[in-house]
Amino acid sequence: MSKTILEIKNLEKFYENGVHALKSVSFDVKQGEFLAVIGLSGSGKSTMLRCINGLVPSSSGEINFQGQDIISLKSKELRLARKSIGMIFQHFNLISRKSVLVNVLSGSLAKVSLFNGIFAKFSKKETDKAMSNLELVGLKDKAYIRADELSGGQQQRVAIARALMQDPEILLADEPVASLDPATSHSVMDHLAYINKELNKTVVCNLHFLSLVRKYATRVIALKDGKLVFEGSPLDIDEAWFKRIYGEQAREVGIE
C-alpha cells in the first residue's frame, strides 16, 4: 500500500486510577486505508484512539503524525495537530441546544479568531462549506433545527459533517454505530466508507461487530487487555482468532 500517515510505537497508558490501559502498542496506519480496531469493551480501544489526538495524554511511546510526535507536543502545537485529525464518537457529542448548522460550523473553530468564535461569526466560505458537508451526509434540509431533535443516526451524520469541516488527514471514529440500530448503522458506515474512498480520507475506526469489520475495513488490528494481539486482513479473522481476541466463551453475533 501507499505511504504511512500515522506511526505508533510502544504506546503505554497508565491511568491515574491504577489501570494499565495500553501495553506497548505499536502499529502503522497507511494513507487512505480503513483500519478497524476491535476488542472487548475495556480492552483499550477508546483510550488508544484518544491518545492519537491527545484527548488522553499518553504515558510513554511515540505517535508520529505529519513529521511530529504527538506525545511531546505542547498544548498549542497539539491544537494545531488536532486540526488535521477529525473525530466522531459513540454518543455523537453534539451541542444539543444549538442548531445543526452551528454544530457543523463548530468543526472549524480552530480556524477562527477568539472574537469571531465567541460571537459565532463564521465567514461565507465556512458557512457554504458547512452546507455542502451537510448535503454530503444528506441533512441539508435540517440545518436550522436543534441538534437534539434529530434521530441518533442523523446526529452521527451531523458529527461526521462537523469532523469534515476540519479537512482532516485522518478520521478517528470511536464506536460510531454502537448506539444505533442495525439499519441506521449501515447508513452511517456507508457515509464513512464514502469519505474513505471518494474523499480519500484515512479512517481509524473502533468497531464491535465483525460483520461490519468484514464489510467496511481494509485492515484490522485487535486489542486485548491493552495489548495488540492481531494485525491483518478482515478475512484472516477465523474462529480460532476470534476466540483468542474475545475469549473462549465468546460467540459471534452479526449485524446484517
Binding site: 484518544r50 489526538n53 484527548l55 491544537r79 494545531l80 495537530a81 488536532r82 486540526k83 485529525i85 477529525g86 473525530m87 464518537f89 454518543h91 455523537f92 457529542n93 453534539l94 451541542i95 444539543s96 444549538k98 463548530s106 468543526g107 472549524s108 473553530l109 480552530a110 477568539l114 468564535g117 465567541i118 458529527a159 462537523r162 469532523a163 469541516m165 476540519q166 478517528l172
Partner: peptide, 21 residues
Amino acid sequence: GQGPLEAIESTGAHPVLVVWY
C-alpha cells in the same frame, strides 16, 4: 456532559472556545 467537551477539543479549538461552545 464530557462528550461535547471532548468533541470540540478534538477539533483543535482554543480552550476558551471549547468552554464557550
